[in-house]
């Protein structure tokens, strides 16, 4: 064994997926997130096919322009996240901090706008709960017949709500990474944390583009 020991010291593990553990772990975790959203989106698709009368035309109840702006914001935050990573790849700590901060602010804004939208929708009677559902549509406060049905509300809040929760968690993680970046924890050679949280952030962004399309536009 002692002869072999000399040669084993510099032996590398099997190459695996050619990425470091944290990145692979995040990829794997995101696959499981895909399945989580699949269960929600699948529920939505099945319920919508079974009960088309519970849905209205796009834009009658939901505020599409506001959310389109919000979607644009979230896409921008993906860009700023890429910028943050690109900065630290070049060893630019100031750049990293600035772009991280931008991402955090945009992410928080997204959640804020979503909260405002929820508030307005609930005010118009578009709720998730069976007994209280009475959506009158935009611009018709408290008058007119109920449009759509409670399944519309329930699936809407379930999908956008769990997505919003993911964004919120992402913002907190970004704040954590930001604080670490202020402490100078990331360098050109040590940027795993930034890349991994970036992956999560892009994933959440991607899910939103899908949700926006199927919830608001179709």
């Amino acid at each position: 064994m002692s002869d072999a020991a000399v040669t084993t010291m510099d032996r590398k593990p099997m190459p695996g997926m050619m990425v470091y553990n944290k990145k692979l772990g995040m990829w794997v975790f995101l696959l499981s997130e895909v399945m989580f959203f699949t269960s929600l989106i699948g529920t939505y698709v099945i319920l919508r096919f079974a009960h088309p009368d519970h849905w209205t035309d796009p834009g009658v109840v939901l505020n599409v322009p506001l959310t389109a702006v919000n979607t644009f914001l979230l896409i921008c935050s993906s860009v700023t996240m890429v910028k943050a990573f690109a900065s630290i790849q070049q060893g630019n700590q100031k750049g990293l901090q600035m772009w991280l901060l931008a991402t955090i602010l945009i992410g928080a804004t997204f959640v804020g706008v979503q909260a405002i939208e929820y508030n307005a929708l609930l005010g118009e009677g578009f709720g998730p709960v069976l007994d209280l559902y009475h959506a009158v549509g935009r611009g018709n406060p408290h008058e007119g017949p109920s449009l759509g049905g409670p399944l519309y509300g329930a699936t809407f809040y379930a999908m956008t709500g769990f997505h919003g929760a993911h964004v919120t968690i992402g913002v907190f993680c970004l704040i954590f990474v930001y604080i670490r970046s202020l402490q100078g924890a990331y360098t050109q050679d040590s940027l795993e944390g930034v890349e991994v949280i970036g992956l999560y952030w892009h994933f959440v962004d991607l899910v939103w583009i899908l949700l926006f399309t199927i919830v608001y536009l179709i």
Partner: peptide, 11 residues
């Protein structure tokens, strides 16, 4: 909270 994903009374 009273949603109706699986409750037939709310379709």
């Amino acid at each position: 909270i009273g949603t109706a994903f699986f409750r037939p009374e709310g379709s």
